[in-house]
Simulated assay, not measured.
Amino acid sequence: MSDIGFFARRYGPPPHEDRPATVLVHGLGLSGRYFVPLARRLAANGATVVVPDLPGNARSRAAARRAPDVEQLADALAGLHRRLSLGPSLIVANSVGCQVVAALAARHPHLVSRLVLVGPALEPRVSGWRQFGRLVADAPKEPLGLLWLAAFDYLVTGPLRCAASFHRSLRDAGESFEVNLSQVRAPTLVVRGAGDTIASGTWTRRVAGLVADGRAEDIPGAAHAAHYSAPDAMATLIEKFTAGETG
């Protein structure tokens, strides 16, 4: 979709004003490819699903001259909404993508109908080295296919750009993430794979408590990328949440 300035995939029917779209937002240095299993599952039930590669990442690497900060990525998502006429949408994000969509909801609240935060990272007041150690500990718990996909995406995005993005995301975690979460008024579901070593249970429950209307759920047998390893369970949670069901 060259008209939005960066690459995005679309699944399901075209956007329609009477049906909120679903936007899936990837984590640091990655592409939207690891959201494809979930996107297909949601689209099979009639959802319009948009899966971008954020500017500076993977197939959208050339859309930014240098690694954008979190606020710039949030504004880029707002631009995608406007250009595709998506309107208020369900936003699903993983890992550092949760910082981006928290900024989106704080800066452009009219574009967000509901939020789903999967393994929100980075956790404030945790050092960069400790965050990196958590990532290394999570890797053996993820499917091998995800590890190959992530390795390829990191290479395409570039190690230096990934490092710069990590530095900027750490700064956002320390200065803005919790502030942005406290400004979120959209109903929010915080999902954690039960084996996630990156987003702790204590932190994900705090995230659910920081937003105005939040609740937390765990997915057994999954780790940080629960949307990839358990797309059916994730889709079921999202569809119940969208329908206003609890539990």
Rank of each mutant, 00 (worst) to 15 (best):
I91E: 08
S85C: 15
A63D: 03
G79N: 07
R82N: 09
G97W: 06
R66T: 14
A58W: 11
A103M: 04
L80G: 00
A102L: 01
G97L: 04
A93V: 10
A102W: 00
R82M: 04
A74D: 00
R66N: 12
V96E: 13
L80C: 00
S95C: 12
P88T: 12
A74F: 05
N94A: 11
A67S: 15
A58L: 05
S89K: 12
N57D: 14
I91C: 03
A102P: 08
R61C: 03
P55R: 14
G97H: 02
L86M: 11
A103G: 07
A103T: 07
Q99R: 03
A93R: 06
P55S: 11
L80N: 01
L84A: 14
G87C: 02
L104Q: 04
G97M: 01
A103C: 06
A58H: 13
S85N: 07
H81Q: 09
V92D: 08
C98N: 03
L84Y: 02
V51P: 05
Q99I: 01
P88S: 14
P55T: 08
L90E: 14
R82C: 01
S60L: 07
V92A: 14
R83K: 14
R59S: 14
A78E: 01
A102H: 00
P88N: 06
P68G: 04
R83H: 06
V70C: 13
V50L: 15
A93T: 13
D69Q: 10
P88W: 11
E71K: 09
V51K: 04
L80P: 01
A105I: 07
L73M: 13
Q99M: 08
P52K: 02
L77C: 05
I91A: 09
V100T: 14
V70I: 15
A63T: 04
P52V: 07
G79Q: 11
R82Q: 12
R59T: 15
P68N: 04
V96M: 12
N57P: 13
D53N: 05
Q72V: 10
A74V: 08
A76G: 03
S60A: 10
V92P: 09
D69G: 14
L80Y: 02
S85A: 15
V51C: 10
V101Q: 02
L77K: 03
P88H: 13
S85K: 15
A64K: 01
S60K: 09
A78I: 04
E71A: 15
Q72R: 13
A67V: 06
A105Q: 08
C98S: 06
P55N: 03
A102V: 08
Q99T: 06
A93F: 08
P52C: 11
V100E: 01
V100K: 01
R61A: 10
L77P: 00
R83Q: 13
S89C: 13
L84C: 10
P52L: 10
L86R: 04
L84S: 09
A76L: 00
R66L: 07
N94V: 13
A62F: 05
V51W: 07
A103N: 05
Q72A: 15
A74H: 02
P68D: 01
R66M: 12
L84V: 01
A105S: 12
A67N: 06
Q99F: 01
A67K: 10
A62V: 03
N94L: 11
L86I: 07
L90N: 13
P68S: 06
D75Y: 02
P68W: 09
R65L: 14
A76C: 01
L90C: 11
A76W: 00
